[in-house]
Design a protein around this nucleic acid. Structure first.
Lengths: 300, 300
DNA sequence: CACGTCCATGCCGCCAGGTTATGAGGACAG
DNA sequence: CTGTCCTCATAACCTGGCGGCATGGACGTG
């Protein structure tokens, strides 16, 4: 009497959606496959979990009892697997660090080099953070530490040490009329279409649209992108302009796009971020130490 | 990235045993199957969980991290499934009651009848408790309430209300020399071989061997049985004699065996037992109520 | 009454887990 | 050194079950 976790995921999805059909597409399986699996789960348990109606699947009492507990079980499993992977990284002397685009710019190499000197034999594994949820991997425990631009969602729950602060510039197609100018003021851009992060990005999206500096005016969205390549392509193709850290001019230079200094928006900070739970981890401390060291001598 | 619970059970078994071969037989699968599964788990996680030595499988750091958490996850799952089944029983108006052999004797029918009157529409599902672990189903939540002879292992953690008390008799082969006697004293039986419960039964086994009344003498074991049928057969075949509640003379009468009253051993009590967690359950309360009602009018 | 939206069923291809038989390597005794 | 016993790994084969497609059937709606 072994219930596959796949069955549990399936069940949870159907319970949540209330529809076999919709759950099926969310799970990327066909509806008949789901039908069969749910029936099998019911048969294995000897319990009816749903009442089938022409309008969907409604949980029975027993079904509700199960649905109430399954998420915790699945979470517990995921947590166990994460811990396992983390232990494996320690044993193999690997630190996994998250980076968002070129946020830390030239600091990145310097920090990794310094860490290599402080912990010979250890390796830094770089991982790209998702643009729309930059701290997700960190919170989930998939990375030990991350170099990310501020502000971050859920920042209060994390340890944050600012590494460097640089002005936000504007990036636009070279052919853009404003590209002829050497420097721009943000208010000149209020009515320009912007290439923005997806709506799920929330505060992150707002920050790079600089909604706080628009005195209430709604930004115009010319395109949506959720990774640097798409983002830069959209800019190059003239779908809109965008804000970017000054260092992007070096790290994301590309024919057809132009970066220009900008006044009237607050500068952007990049920070090293880790979980309070990792405070005691000597390896994380060393990595953070290397970051802070860099902060004191940004010229090195 | 779905880890089957079967894999987790396999892993836990290997981690515990420290040997692929032994774990395989405990799990009733072949050793190559286990080998493959464990390797697959390692591959799925991208983590080495064991170091293979010619002497067995030793957990790595990562393996230990996983082994520390897997049992809790599996328990959580089992608990969720139990709750689900229990909810289903409630919805179908079924009470599942455990019985050990004919412990409650004629009380059983009377109680079930009384419960049927108090809760029309409800059904009592009878389930045989295991002889060697009488409270296992109760503790695990597979039965709601049980009628069991005392003493019980883990009795302190349970609600126990004594229903009836009856003397312990002796049962032996009809051909046994002592069977000619009308009544026996326990000390006459000290050197007789006994048919006993398996060693796992612990205190239960000792109780029915009446070790407390032997003044330190070791009982002789003539045969081991873990269910009433084997037990009675062993007695009939002369492998040994045994103690039994007086009512067994009626409920387990069989050609070839003779029951005789016995002096010099404490009488046996039968109780209704339930989990403290079920105190608030109105159905369990009603069932217990019917039991206690019977206690007050054992003649009815 | 026709249509849309559900879920259920039948059939088929394929993968994954299981089994048996066999190999390979270290530990230990003689 | 060698035979034996223990361990885990590998190979070849079989089968059950999952998943996909196409279709059927039930209920509600315009």
């Amino acid at each position: 009497m072994d219930v596959d976790t796949r069955l549990l995921r399936y069940f949870a999805a159907v319970a949540e959606e209330g529809h076999l059909t919709r759950a099926a597409e969310r799970l990327y399986v066909s509806q008949p496959a789901l039908t069969k699996q749910i029936r099998q789960l019911e048969k294995q348990l000897g319990v009816q979990l749903f009442v089938r109606t022409p309008g969907g699947m409604r949980l029975t009492e027993a079904g509700r009892a199960l649905a109430d507990r399954v998420p915790a079980v699945l979470d517990g499993l995921a947590e166990a697997l994460r811990r396992t992977r983390q232990a494996a990284r320690r044993a193999e002397q690997v630190v996994r660090a998250g980076f968002l685009a070129g946020a830390a710019g030239e600091a990145t190499q310097a920090i990794i080099a310094a860490f290599g000197r402080r912990r010979p034999g250890w390796r830094v594994e770089m991982r790209h953070a998702s643009w729309s949820a930059p701290t997700a991997d960190l919170v989930a425990g998939d990375v030990d530490v991350a170099l990310l631009p501020l502000p971050l969602p859920g920042q209060e729950e994390l340890r944050v040490e600012v590494l460097l602060t640089e002005p936000r510039w504007v990036v636009m197609a070279e052919a853009h009329p404003l590209a002829v100018r050497e420097e721009l003021a943000f208010r000149e851009l209020w009515d320009e279409p912007f290439v923005a992060a997806p709506a799920e990005a929330g505060a992150w999206r707002d920050y790079w649209l600089a909604t706080e500096g628009r005195e209430g005016r709604e930004p115009r969205i010319g395109a949506v992108a959720d990774n640097p390549d798409d983002w830069l392509s959209a800019v190059a193709n003239g779908y809109g302009i965008a804000l970017a850290p000054a260092s992007a001019a070096r790290y994301y230079a590309r024919p057809g796009v132009a970066y220009r200094p900008l006044t009237g928006v607050a500068p952007n900070s990049v920070a090293v971020v880790w979980k309070p739970a990792a405070d005691a981890d000597p390896v994380v401390r060393d990595f953070v130490g290397c970051c802070l060291e860099y902060r004191q001598q940004p010229s090195s």
